[in-house]
Design a protein around this nucleic acid. Structure first.
Lengths: 190, 190
DNA sequence: GACGATACGGACTGGCCGCTCCGCTTGTCT
DNA sequence: AGACAAGCGGAGCGGCCAGTCCGTATCGTC
């Protein structure tokens, strides 16, 4: 549905599709999924008909938004994991994911509950991210940087929760950093 | 609106009001606030007219539910704070609040964002709980049990976040306890 | 038991929103 | 330039849901 295209889109259609995705991302992120489709279409400068031709359902639009976000996160996570030295990579990725999903922990929630009810389109990216996190967690535990009474499910749940925590401290970067300190200190062996 | 009653309710009216509150609590907690009022009324064995006579608005019903929950939590917190030895009281209250708001972190969210947009009716209980937590936090920090680079706003946000974390580990008590361990270890001085 | 006050029920209304449909426009290819 | 496919817009439909209204039933009192 996202990659394998039967026939290339006409230029204006491609432009509209991209604008819709951008607007939807912005709107869903800042104001939640309750925003009427009509408003998204208008903001993107198209009619509702156009929106529903590209995304047959409001849910499909949301899904497309999430897929893009998740793919970005997966890519950044991979890069970070490669560039950072192993002992810190897990924490760096953790922080990146939480901050990337600012104001939008429906994303992380989708990540944490992946597979349970998520649509197939989301599985690829979520599984990729989860795989990377699992690997990083294992490394970090073996190197003694992270406590061993802690698994992937806990890590994913903690990711979602920390994202919620941050939503309450949006306007306060120092407090946000203090939260990360608490969580990371808590994750180290005791 | 909740306490000062002009005239005592008729017996059936009081019964219906109580049933509505119970059903609404259950339904909002397990299935979110999107559930139609009509269903709540029917489950409580009354018509919608009755529901709206007791609670002029769906929002008013939600508010009444939250007030009751918050008052319960405030009472339990106070008791716990009195019975537990100071060095552990903060952690005990933290855990109690998170577990009491199981599946319903709209409650804790209301707590954390209190005053900002919350209705006046909620302020009393939220302020009471926040006051208790602030006192416990101060004690705990002075006694050296909790790191000092951590304030009440951070604590409230962390409460909301931990509640979200727990929602992802509902069926897994051991994992839940491990999360508490991480958070509490992180809260101790480093 | 009878009478007024109080409360009840549920059909109904108004507004919102996701989605469809089709006459019109615009891009593309020759 | 012409012609055809591809895409567009937005009025309108249907369903859902919060909240109203009033004829009817129930409670409390004497």
């Amino acid at each position: 549905m996202s990659a394998a295209e039967g026939r290339p889109l006409r230029a204006d259609a491609a432009r509209n599709r991209a604008r819709l995705l951008d607007v939807a991302t912005e709107v869903f992120t800042t104001r939640g999924v309750g925003v009427p489709t009509e408003e998204i279409a208008r903001t993107a400068g198209v009619g509702v008909g156009t929106l529903f031709r590209h995304f047959p359902t409001k849910e499909a639009l949301l899904e497309a938004v999430m897929v893009r976000r998740l793919e970005e996160i997966a890519a950044q996570t991979a890069r970070l994991a490669a560039e950072t030295k192993p002992s810190q990579a897990l924490f760096a990725c953790f922080q990146l994911i939480v901050e990337q999903s600012a104001g939008k922990n429906e994303f992380v929630q989708a990540l944490a509950t992946a597979g349970v009810d998520a649509h197939a389109a989301l599985q690829d990216s979520t599984e990729m991210i989860q795989g990377q996190l699992a690997a990083l967690l294992g490394q970090a535990q073996r190197s003694g940087a992270v406590r061993t009474d802690f698994g992937l499910p806990e890590l994913l749940a903690l990711l979602a929760g920390t994202s919620t925590t941050m939503e309450h401290l949006e306007a306060n970067p120092e407090a946000r950093q203090r939260i990360f300190n608490v969580v990371f200190d808590g994750l180290r062996p005791h």
